[in-house]
Design a protein around this nucleic acid. Structure first.
Length: 875
RNA sequence: GCCCGAGUGGCGGAAUGGUAGACGCUGCGGACUUAAAAUCCGUUGCCAGUAAUGGCGUGAGGGUUCAAGUCCCUCCUCGGGCACCA
């Protein structure tokens, strides 16, 4: 019994010794720590502001520092941008690769509500953890430019941009529907509402109109569409933005209400179907509805309006498979035929789009058709297919064709007739050409604590009029149209907190709970809310102090809403250029030099919101003369999701989440970086694989061994022609692949070279040095370590990027493959000088080719120079 | 319903219209070792055959071409986006 135990422990001891040796061989943890320290101390990745060099700015969508820490998906994009950053640096560019924190947001606030911990405390802890994790992956980040959206020195400028928008009339206040939970007494964000219930507690929620600050993004609709053309973005993302903005062209037509002086305005994209309008529909919220309803129908219509008001957006759209509506009892007169057209109210017409009323053409619109069938309303065809194809011209028919039943327009081509009809309507002053957008204005306020305070105060009409007349900073900041809001039946007027008084900091608060009234927790702090405000200078002090002397001091209340999380991320790409500037958002000279990111990478889930909002702000600041460039992100890329090993989306509840910390401990950051890129195309959705990472780890160990095998190293240029050729093939392919963001292909090629170096007896030390340079952007720690080992001076990124000698890739001997009818039948080697005739006749004589050609007629001979011969045979 | 994108071995994936399956993983066989780990060598699309070799093969069906994973048409499946926007 003793002996086996003794043997066992002896074996374990030997194993441990061997393990220690192995670790000494490629001790990635020590190597990575060493070089991360080196980069930090040497400030290797400092971006220079006044450089003569050409710039390259690589930007990642900055993370929200959650409590859960980084997961394996985060670094995918960061690694990609880092590879580019390091590659461009080696190519001689002045590179900026920054990192920061999008740190306002719900989770910290929810945690605060639960525990009473100030969100800034939670945020700080999370940021520290994220920074630690990101640093452990060894990115070429200029940490001197780190930013944080919750830092008052940062959000001072977020507020400053808001003031500009306010000044230009692009901000207003309106009642807008938001999710309201009567049980929680709180406004909920979309993501807090799951299946019509609150995510917390599962309480029912409803749409409720609440006072909101709104940004007029619709004023930029045209510019946002036009700007897309110049962007190097994924087509799908451009298309999504275009669809989101949803521009359509058509006409606004007036239908006079029978027996009234007024007309009902409708919007249509199909003025050519005007004669097919057999009824009209107004939205339940339409302002003229009251006048349209005849007394006999009043009860029914009222009931319908009430029912519609109770429906959520979801019920009114998705789930409302069946059309509903009620006849108002009124008629309009058709603008061209003068016929009576009944007016209905139905909730399939939205008050928020167009004029909130439509002319219904059931013959040529699916929705109207469905409605007309249900309520037995006449259906009148006015477009006929030219080819008379009965199947395809079945009603409802929305295609093109020839106009019929349309009086003077009969026989004309419908598409071409649109403009004709519009101009005819214009001549009669009963219509005009019109453009509409699906894009809605941006609800910019949140009834939350943990966000940027909106720098507005509210005063009475008298005080507002006085402010307009008072010389000083405030008067100049006012928009042409005053921003107003009704509170308890009194109209209040908005005045700004001027730039000189920014940042308007978040006050301390005792409770983070919502106020219960649908206002933010800030509304519960009277000391902060009620102020004395100087109409000339914008100075403000709490009303718990005595009113200061001076005629310009008035009583005011602060705006209590805060900004949405999007605000800080709308312009962060600018702040990296000049993170500590106290005078400007960004120094114009620096903005001129750096411009926008040359490469921007992040998830496709931001295709519309973040990327559209940021473009809006950037374009606005450009129009204001603050920025030299109109568009923020010239080149955009979306990395694909990394799934769990089981092929499912990584999630805590499924338990398939992989933490980078664990992977780094087991294989090192270089293996992690390399494997995330080796997994597949950057844009593809792909599953993680524990086994797979061992493959790239093995490759790194191989490089490590070959770089350390001093006995195989030769001085001077590479003598082995095969090695030399492969080396330059690798330089070419790796360079091209990095430029094309095809890092998986670059890695494959380096594996091929490493496998070759392992097989040959010796190779030049220059060869391994070049390989290390190629590898450096992808696996920077190991490359630095080995570069130093083979006699290079760190840092390896300061070495000029290797240039491929293309002349080496053309060999004297070429291999030509022989095909018969496109199928491979043989191959042969020829000298570079061999003629077409020589090669073809050799092909015909080839034994295996003969087997497929004898007894048959060669009808065609194809020769692709340097590649192949294809003989087409018959019979 | 509409608009995109993608379907290639057991798996992740390579292939300017020109040798399909590079590279990696897995499996199998072997070397080294007392043994293991590590490392290395060979092999690994399917079918037939001891083999040489032949046939089939890139979601399905058609087409263009001397030649198609790649281009065109129709369809299927999966993924993403939009969804009563007149």
């Amino acid at each position: 019994m003793l002996l086996p135990n003794f043997c066992k422990s002896f074996i374990i001891k030997i194993y441990l010794i061997k393990m220690a040796e192995e670790e000494k061989q490629y001790d990635f943890l020590a190597i990575e720590k060493k070089w991360q320290k080196f980069w930090e101390e040497e400030k290797t990745f400092l971006a220079e502001d006044n450089s003569e060099k050409e710039k390259f700015y690589a930007l990642d969508m900055f993370p929200y520092p959650s409590g859960a820490g980084l997961h394996i998906g985060h670094p995918e994009g960061y690694v990609a941008s880092d590879i580019l950053a390091r590659y461009k640096k080696a190519c001689g560019f002045n590179v900026l690769h920054p990192m920061g924190w999008d740190a306002f947001g719900l989770p910290a606030e929810q945690y605060a509500i639960k525990t009473g911990t100030h969100p800034s405390v939670t945020t700080q802890a999370n940021v520290d953890n994220f920074r630690r994790q990101i640093k452990s992956i060894g990115f070429a980040i200029d940490w001197d430019r780190e930013i944080n959206t919750t830092d008052p020195n940062y959000y001072k400028w977020t507020q400053w941009i808001f003031l500009k928008l306010f000044q230009r009339g692009l901000a207003y206040v309106a009642e807008k529907p938001v999710w309201w939970c009567p049980n929680l007494l709180a406004v909920l964000a979309n993501e807090e509402v799951v299946d019509g219930k609150s995510e917390v507690g599962g309480h029912p929620v409803e749409r409720r109109n609440l006072r909101q600050v709104v940004l007029r993004i619709t004023a930029y609709a045209e510019k946002l569409i036009a700007g897309l053309d110049e962007l190097d973005w994924p087509n799908s993302t451009k298309r999504q933005q275009k669809a989101w903005i949803g521009r359509s062209e058509g006409a606004e037509v007036q239908f006079v209400i029978e027996g009234a002086d007024e007309a009902l305005k409708v919007y249509t994209t199909r003025p050519d179907t005007l004669y097919g309008a057999t009824y009209m529909v107004v939205a339940p919220e339409h302002p003229l509805l009251d006048k349209l309803v005849i007394p006999e129908n009043e009860n029914e219509v009222k009931a319908y309006i009430q029912a519609a008001a109770k429906k959520s957006d979801l019920d009114r759209t998705d789930l409302a498979k069946d059309k509903s509506g009620v006849f108002t009892g009124s008629y309009c007169l058709h603008p061209l035929s003068g016929e009576k057209v009944p007016v209905w109210v139905a909730d399939y017409v939205l008050i928020t789009y167009g004029t909130g009323a439509i002319m219904a053409v059931p013959a040529h619109d699916e929705r109207d058709f469905e409605f007309a069938e249900k309520f037995a309303i006449p259906i009148k065809r006015v477009i006929a297919r030219v080819d008379g194809d009965e199947e395809k011209s079945k009603l409802p028919y929305s295609g093109s064709g020839i106009m019929v039943n349309s009086a003077d327009y009969d026989g004309l081509e419908a598409d071409k007739c649109k403009a004709q009809i519009i101009s005819d309507l214009e001549a009669k002053e009963i219509g005009k050409g019109a453009v509409n957008y699906k894009l809605r204005d941006w609800i910019f306020s949140r009834q939350r604590y943990w966000g940027e305070p909106i720098p507005l105060v509210w005063v009475s009409r008298e005080d507002f009029e006085k402010a307009k007349m008072t010389e000083g900073a405030i008067r100049d900041l006012l928009p042409e149209e005053p921003v107003t809001s009704d509170k308890d039946g009194v109209t209040l007027y908005a005045l700004p907190i001027p730039a000189s008084e920014l940042p308007l900091k978040l006050p301390e608060v005792e409770k983070y709970q919502p106020s219960g009234t649908g206002e933010s927790p800030l509304a519960t702090i009277p000391d902060w809310l009620n102020i004395w405000y100087d109409l000339a200078t914008g100075l403000a002090i709490s009303q718990n102090e005595a009113k200061p002397n001076g005629e310009n001091w008035v009583s005011a209340t602060r705006e209590t809403n805060t900004m949405p999380q999007w605000a800080g991320s709308c312009w962060y790409h600018l702040r990296y250029l000049d993170p500590n500037n106290t005078e400007h958002l960004v120094d114009p000279e620096k903005e001129e030099y750096w411009g926008g990111p040359d490469f921007y990478i992040g998830g496709a889930e931001h295709a519309v919101l973040h990327l559209l909002y940021a473009r809006f702000w950037h374009r606005f600041l450009h129009d204001e003369g603050v920025l030299a460039h109109p568009e923020p992100y010239k080149k955009l890329f979306h990395q694909g999701l990394i799934l769990g090993e089981d092929g499912n989306k990584m999630s805590k509840s499924v338990g398939n989440v992989v933490s980078p910390d664990v992977v780094i401990n087991a294989y090192g950051a270089d293996s992690l970086r390399l494997f995330e890129m080796f997994l597949g195309p950057l844009e593809a959705v792909k599953p993680w694989s524990e086994k797979g990472i061992e493959g790239v780890h093995r490759f790194l160990k191989k490089v490590f061994r070959e770089a350390n095998s001093a006995h195989k190293h030769l001085v001077g240029e590479e003598k082995n022609p095969e090695t030399l050729r492969l080396l330059h093939e690798t330089i070419l392919k790796v360079t091209e692949s990095i430029e094309d963001l095809r890092f998986n292909v670059a890695i494959s090629q380096m594996m091929i070279l490493a496998n070759h170096l392992q097989k040959v007896e010796s190779f030049s030390i220059e060869t391994i040095k070049t390989l290390l340079q190629l590898l450096a952007p992808l696996a920077p720690h190991l490359s630095e370590e080995l570069w130093e080992k083979v006699g290079g001076t760190p840092s390896i990124v300061n070495q000029a990027w290797p240039q491929a000698r293309k002349e080496l890739l053309v060999s004297d001997e070429i291999t030509i493959v022989f095909q018969v009818n496109g199928k491979l039948r043989g191959e042969s080697k020829f000298s570079k000088e061999a003629t077409k005739e020589e090669i073809i006749s050799k092909a015909k004589e080839h034994e295996k080719v003969l087997a497929f050609t004898t007894g048959k007629e060669i009808v065609k001979e194809i020769y692709v120079p340097g590649k192949l011969v294809n003989l087409a045979v018959k019979g």
